[in-house]
Amino acid sequence: MQVAGLKTPMGEEFVLIFYAAVFGVAAGVPVLIIPKIIALKKPSVAKLATFEAGQVPTGESRVRLMMQYYAYLLMFVVFDVISMFLFAWAVAFAGLGLSSALVIAGFLAIILIAMGYALYLAGKRELW
Protein backbone atom coordinates (compact mmCIF):
# COMPACT_ATOMS: atom_id res chain seq x y z
CA MET A 1 0.00 0.00 0.00
CA GLN A 2 1.30 3.42 -0.98
CA VAL A 3 0.73 6.14 1.58
CA ALA A 4 0.45 9.42 -0.27
CA GLY A 5 2.18 11.71 2.19
CA LEU A 6 5.25 9.63 2.97
CA LYS A 7 6.92 8.61 -0.25
CA THR A 8 9.78 11.05 -0.72
CA PRO A 9 13.04 10.72 1.20
CA MET A 10 13.75 13.76 3.29
CA GLY A 11 17.21 15.06 3.75
CA GLU A 12 17.07 18.10 1.54
CA GLU A 13 14.35 19.58 3.72
CA PHE A 14 16.42 19.28 6.88
CA VAL A 15 19.47 20.74 5.17
CA LEU A 16 17.50 23.79 3.99
CA ILE A 17 16.10 24.38 7.46
CA PHE A 18 19.57 24.04 8.92
CA TYR A 19 20.92 26.60 6.44
CA ALA A 20 18.13 28.97 7.38
CA ALA A 21 18.86 28.56 11.08
CA VAL A 22 22.55 29.24 10.51
CA PHE A 23 21.65 32.33 8.50
CA GLY A 24 19.37 33.54 11.30
CA VAL A 25 22.16 33.22 13.87
CA ALA A 26 24.59 34.95 11.50
CA ALA A 27 22.10 37.77 10.91
CA GLY A 28 21.84 38.31 14.65
CA VAL A 29 25.58 38.89 15.11
CA PRO A 30 25.88 42.31 13.38
CA VAL A 31 22.73 43.49 15.13
CA LEU A 32 24.52 42.93 18.44
CA ILE A 33 27.91 44.22 17.23
CA ILE A 34 26.63 47.62 16.05
CA PRO A 35 25.48 48.73 19.55
CA LYS A 36 28.76 47.35 20.90
CA ILE A 37 30.64 49.81 18.66
CA ILE A 38 28.51 52.95 18.69
CA ALA A 39 26.86 52.94 22.12
CA LEU A 40 28.35 54.82 25.07
CA LYS A 41 29.55 52.40 27.73
CA LYS A 42 29.40 53.54 31.36
CA PRO A 43 29.10 50.43 33.50
CA SER A 44 28.50 50.91 37.21
CA VAL A 45 27.87 48.58 40.10
CA ALA A 46 24.20 49.52 40.29
CA LYS A 47 23.72 49.05 36.55
CA LEU A 48 25.27 45.59 36.49
CA ALA A 49 23.47 44.38 39.60
CA THR A 50 20.62 41.91 39.32
CA PHE A 51 17.28 43.70 38.95
CA GLU A 52 15.06 43.28 41.97
CA ALA A 53 12.47 46.03 41.56
CA GLY A 54 14.86 48.80 42.59
CA GLN A 55 15.98 47.18 45.86
CA VAL A 56 19.52 46.08 46.65
CA PRO A 57 19.55 42.42 45.53
CA THR A 58 19.58 39.97 48.42
CA GLY A 59 20.46 36.29 48.57
CA GLU A 60 20.97 33.83 45.75
CA SER A 61 19.22 34.63 42.46
CA ARG A 62 18.71 30.98 41.57
CA VAL A 63 16.20 30.16 44.25
CA ARG A 64 14.54 26.78 44.65
CA LEU A 65 10.88 27.27 43.86
CA MET A 66 8.01 24.98 44.81
CA MET A 67 7.06 23.22 41.57
CA GLN A 68 3.38 22.79 42.28
CA TYR A 69 2.64 22.20 38.61
CA TYR A 70 5.45 19.70 38.06
CA ALA A 71 2.92 16.92 37.40
CA TYR A 72 1.84 18.60 34.17
CA LEU A 73 5.41 18.58 32.90
CA LEU A 74 5.62 14.84 33.58
CA MET A 75 2.32 14.33 31.77
CA PHE A 76 3.61 16.25 28.79
CA VAL A 77 6.60 13.95 28.41
CA VAL A 78 4.24 10.96 28.09
CA PHE A 79 1.34 12.38 26.11
CA ASP A 80 3.40 14.38 23.63
CA VAL A 81 4.93 11.17 22.30
CA ILE A 82 1.53 9.49 22.18
CA SER A 83 0.03 12.37 20.19
CA MET A 84 2.82 11.85 17.65
CA PHE A 85 1.74 8.20 17.23
CA LEU A 86 -1.69 9.50 16.25
CA PHE A 87 -0.13 11.44 13.35
CA ALA A 88 1.26 8.24 11.84
CA TRP A 89 -2.24 6.75 11.96
CA ALA A 90 -3.92 9.90 10.62
CA VAL A 91 -1.75 9.99 7.49
CA ALA A 92 -2.51 6.34 6.74
CA PHE A 93 -6.20 6.45 7.71
CA ALA A 94 -7.62 6.79 4.17
CA GLY A 95 -6.04 3.48 3.18
CA LEU A 96 -6.76 1.61 6.40
CA GLY A 97 -10.53 2.06 6.58
CA LEU A 98 -13.01 2.49 9.40
CA SER A 99 -11.85 -0.54 11.41
CA SER A 100 -8.61 1.23 12.22
CA ALA A 101 -10.64 4.09 13.67
CA LEU A 102 -12.17 1.63 16.17
CA VAL A 103 -8.71 0.52 17.26
CA ILE A 104 -7.64 4.14 17.64
CA ALA A 105 -10.84 4.90 19.56
CA GLY A 106 -9.88 2.18 22.05
CA PHE A 107 -6.35 3.55 22.21
CA LEU A 108 -7.67 7.08 22.84
CA ALA A 109 -10.08 5.80 25.51
CA ILE A 110 -7.22 4.17 27.41
CA ILE A 111 -5.13 7.34 27.09
CA LEU A 112 -7.93 9.65 28.16
CA ILE A 113 -8.75 7.53 31.22
CA ALA A 114 -5.09 7.56 32.21
CA MET A 115 -4.91 11.28 31.53
CA GLY A 116 -8.02 11.90 33.63
CA TYR A 117 -6.50 10.06 36.58
CA ALA A 118 -3.22 11.94 36.15
CA LEU A 119 -5.11 15.24 36.06
CA TYR A 120 -6.99 14.26 39.22
CA LEU A 121 -3.69 13.59 41.00
CA ALA A 122 -2.09 16.72 39.54
CA GLY A 123 -4.97 18.79 40.88
CA LYS A 124 -4.21 17.67 44.46
CA ARG A 125 -1.69 20.33 45.35
CA GLU A 126 -0.70 18.88 48.71
CA LEU A 127 0.95 15.94 46.92
CA TRP A 128 3.47 18.15 45.11
Partner: peptide, 30 residues
Protein backbone atom coordinates in the same frame (compact mmCIF):
# COMPACT_ATOMS: atom_id res chain seq x y z
CA UNK B 1 17.83 50.59 20.22
CA UNK B 2 20.99 50.42 18.10
CA UNK B 3 22.44 53.32 20.08
CA UNK B 4 21.77 51.75 23.46
CA UNK B 5 24.33 50.09 25.66
CA UNK B 6 24.10 46.30 25.86
CA UNK B 7 23.98 45.59 29.58
CA UNK B 8 24.92 42.10 30.73
CA UNK B 9 24.37 41.67 34.48
CA UNK B 10 27.47 40.80 36.50
CA UNK B 11 25.93 37.60 37.84
CA UNK B 12 24.64 36.33 34.49
CA UNK B 13 26.19 33.45 32.52
CA UNK B 14 27.59 35.56 29.72
CA UNK B 15 27.82 33.02 26.83
CA UNK B 16 24.33 31.63 27.38
CA UNK B 17 22.90 35.10 27.98
CA UNK B 18 24.17 36.25 24.57
CA UNK B 19 23.33 32.95 22.85
CA UNK B 20 19.62 33.21 23.60
CA UNK B 21 18.80 36.14 21.24
CA UNK B 22 20.97 34.61 18.51
CA UNK B 23 19.35 31.18 18.79
CA UNK B 24 15.91 32.81 18.78
CA UNK B 25 16.80 34.51 15.50
CA UNK B 26 17.98 31.17 14.11
CA UNK B 27 14.77 29.38 15.02
CA UNK B 28 12.64 32.21 13.64
CA UNK B 29 14.46 31.98 10.31
CA UNK B 30 14.13 28.18 10.30
Amino acid sequence: LLGKELIIPAKADKPFFIAVPLLTMGISAA
